[in-house]
Each structure stands twice: as C-alpha cells, then as structure tokens.
Write a protein that binds this DNA or RNA. Structure first.
Lengths: 178, 178
DNA sequence: GTCTATATGCTGATAGAC
DNA sequence: GTCTATCAGCATATAGAC
C-alpha cells in the first residue's frame, strides 16, 4: 500500500463524491467508473466488489478522523470553534469521507454506523473537555451537526443563509461556552 | 380523495418508513409491498410508477408542514422550544415524511430539495420572530437540525446521549434566546 | 381493487483479450 | 492494470385473470 495505483485513488474519490452528491441509488459501479474516467472493469480490478469500495472508504475515513482529532485537540481557537467552523463543508477530504459514511449508515451499513458513533463520541469528548458543562457541549456539537446537515444538502438556500453567518454563529458558540 | 383506499395509505406509509430506516436503495416496490402487506401489483395499482410514490409523499409532507407551522406559531412554550423539542424524532407523521423528503433530496430529487428549502425558511422565520437576533435564531434552528440528524440515524449512541438531555438542551436554547 | 405472470432494462460481477 | 464482452439476478412496469 506504499503507492497505490492512481486509478484506484480516482475510483475511490469518485465513489465517495457520488455518494454525497447523488445518493446511494445513483452510485453504481458504472457511474463510479465514469466519474473516475476509467472503465467498469478497471474499477472492479481494484475493488473486487462494491462492498470493497465501501470498506476502502471506511478505512480512509478512519485515517482522516485520527488526523482531525489531533488537529482539533490542539486548535488555537479551541476544539469547539474548530469543530463548528469545519462542520461547514469546505470540500476537505474529511468532509467527503464523512458524507459518504453518513450515506452508507443511512443505508443501514453497520460498519459505517459504528464508525460514526465512534467519531461523534470522540468529538463530543473533546468539546466537553473544553466547555465543562455537559449540555452546553452537546448544544455546541449539535450546532455543528446542523451545519453539516445543511451544507451537505443539495440546493442553494442553506448555502446562502449559513455561509454568510459562520462568523456570528461562532460567537453564539462562545455564548454557550461561557 | 375523500376516503382513499386503505391499501393506498398503507403503501405510502411503508414507503416513507422504509426510506427513512433502510435508505433509497432498499426501498424497492417489492419491499414497500411487503411492508404494507399487499402485493407488488397492488402497490402499482395505486401508484402507477415509483415516482408517483415520491409525489404522494411530497404532498402529504406539505400538508403536515402546514399543520406544524400553525402549531409552532401558537405553541405556549414558544416556537423555538417547540421546534427543538419536536426535532427529536418522536415517530410523528411529520417526522416520517420529513425523513423521507431528506432521503429523496439526498438522492437529488429536485421537488424534495425545493420543499425542504421552503420549510426551513418558514421554520427559521418563526424562530426569528420570537428571538429577534438573527444569528441566535440560526443557532437555535441548527441545534434542532442536529438533533434531527442524530435521531434519524441508525445506531444507539445518539439515542442514548441526546434523549436523556432534551430538557437541558432546551435550557441551552433559552440561554441563546436571552 | 388486488392478484400472478411476464417482459424489459439495469446492476454487479466474471472471463479473457491486450 | 486496464479494457471489452457477456452473464445472471434484480427492479420497474405491464397484461390480464379473478
């Protein structure tokens, strides 16, 4: 796994992006191949089954999470602000993998459900270490989740409304921290 | 439409429930028929195509929304608390239809996207009329959205964590209102 | 109004050429 | 490693019996 073939990476990226933007139903192997600009056979060489794609996405997600937890724990602005700010989908790798995991969990794929529970628990723990009050920490986390939920939704209204408000929303977070 | 056949209602309910619990991929006409305890042909008599099911769900959603907006506007506890409290999925009709709409929107179905933008805008307007400050209102709405997002997710952690906290989360809402 | 049986097309996966 | 060709199975939808 030192240097995975480029086609493999492209296919995995296309798979995650498609899940997020088009949903599980539209995320066929053929669509993944088209998105990655390779053939169906090419995809199935690197990922022998469709579930293998999901498993690879899961592993990549876990790796990005470890990285994110480290950054969040040491963020100069504090974990709460870091968490809420980055919940507004910015197109980062973590965003893409997280959205893909949510779609897979919504399709009742147990490994994704487990991974999401694990990361939510970890995120909440970091926020709570900063904030102290358990329920203020939960409220802050939920603001982040709400932001994610809106930003990962198709349509323009959410984007217009909350993108403009991010800075002031972080001030609401400060009010809850106090 | 005075008294729609019972089988029709059962099929529509099964369709919405399946979308929420199992996802779009698992929501096949056969699964809907099984959930409603009728045959595939029976489903397709009342809903000539799969999209007809989605359209019926959309209309039912809109009706529930009108009802909810009226209740929310006149809630003795105030729109904010009402909104956040009912965002924690209770199994109401609105919950079921809303979750179904979210899944359809995530599958890029434009009518669902439009309907969700409309209701979010309406909810935010009511909260803002009570709260005054635009960004406090947005934060409150996002707490509700976060709650919905967690409660509609499979898995036990969210349920255990937030179900116990609802009362104290409403106190956080009060802090933001002030 | 509801059923069974069937046609058609799409999706996941395999085989084998290059 | 990547492609094309092909198969088996499944999902949507239709036809027609009851």
């Amino acid at each position: 796994m030192a240097r995975p073939p480029k086609a493999r990476d492209k296919a995995l990226a296309a798979y995650c992006a498609l899940l997020g933007t088009e949903g599980e139903r539209a995320t066929t192997i053929e669509a993944v191949a088209a998105g990655a600009d390779i053939s169906k056979g090419g995809v199935l060489y690197h990922f022998p089954s469709k579930e293998a794609l999901a498993e690879a996405a899961l592993e990549a997600f876990r790796e990005e999470c470890e990285r994110d937890l480290a950054t969040m724990a040491e963020a100069p602005e504090g974990p709460s602000r870091h968490y809420v700010r980055t919940s507004w989908t910015s197109g980062s790798d973590l965003d893409t993998y997280y959205t893909a995991m949510v779609r897979l969990a919504q399709g009742s794929w147990q490994p994704a459900i487990d991974a999401l529970e694990w990361i939510h628990e970890a995120w909440l723990r970091l926020i709570r270490e900063e904030v102290g009050d358990r329920h203020a920490a939960e409220a802050i986390m939920l603001i982040g989740e709400g932001l994610y939920h809106h930003s990962s939704m198709p349509g323009e209204w959410s984007r217009g409304t909350f993108a403009r408000s991010l800075k002031q929303l972080l001030e609401q977070v400060d009010r809850l921290k106090a």
